[in-house]
Design a binder for these strands. Sequence first.
DNA 1: GCAAATTAATGATTTATTCAAG
DNA 2: CTTGAATAAATCATTAATTTGC
Lengths: 162, 162
Amino acid sequence: MRMGNPYFDPFVASGSQKLTARQRWTPTPAQLQILEHVYDECKGTPRKQKIQDMTAELAKHGQISETNVYNWFQNRRARLKRKQSGVVPNNAESEAETVTHAESRKQNPESIQSLEDSAPPPRDEDIYPQSPDLGIDQMIGKMEIPGSFSFHWQVDRYDMLG
Amino acid sequence: MRMGNPYFDPFVASGSQKLTARQRWTPTPAQLQILEHVYDECKGTPRKQKIQDMTAELAKHGQISETNVYNWFQNRRARLKRKQSGVVPNNAESEAETVTHAESRKQNPESIQSLEDSAPPPRDEDIYPQSPDLGIDQMIGKMEIPGSFSFHWQVDRYDMLG
DNA sequence: GCAAATTAATGATTTATTCAAG
DNA sequence: CTTGAATAAATCATTAATTTGC
């Protein structure tokens, strides 16, 4: 089912410097605290408004996006449920992922199918009728983070070539 | 698993005019033709760039958004595969599945529970590093559609009240 | 004490299932 | 019934912990 690689654009330039390698967001301790606090308040996935609000707040403590927040809640809820429900040490492969970790770490580096690339889920492109400034502000702001180490943006998450 | 109603906001205002009722996009014949043509070319879900390009083109033939295009491809692929594989028209009660906890298939249309609303998947908000103009342009452009009938944007797809 | 190698967490994407509008 | 839309589950892939050898 899974095509080996959902996206695979290791080199956008010439494959010498992975200056645009895909890197995932990592919440700062402050962000994590806020996120967990909100999660504690309302278990369910927060609404759009809430997400936007949180994102704006979290952005003050480090790089973040609404997508990150949304994903975080999704994962948090799913994994918490799984942990609570069926940890069941009874069965052999409780997680079906145990094996995948140890050895199946490869990501199909050979299949260069520059023809079949899956597309990203563009969820909302036009649902921001009220506050586009936020997005722009963030985009500009994140270009240079004064404190801490160099944080990479997930700008090139998908791909940028036709 | 599925909660009865993931989101359920029939009326956002006060229940007098359903001016913001949820309405799904319906491709115009011209749009459909284009979509199917592109699908025929490359079966896989197109890439971001392609989606954007197509959306821009399709927008000339009627209301549309990248989300619509993406969903269309997703559904097209999934359903076509299902059809091709094993149709297995089990019209019987095949949905019974593993009913962990008795769950009614019915969604009570009476329950006006506009309190807990699930959140939308904010997919990309800051992934436009190279051509933000496009995004902004689109965003602005769609604010007012001169022609055609009054199509509701899915701005209110989720909710707009805290 | 540090750094490469391993393992465990977890952020991000894809797929399957379901809901509901037309 | 068809199918656009939305969610949750499954999966993938990258980062942080941890272990190991020096």
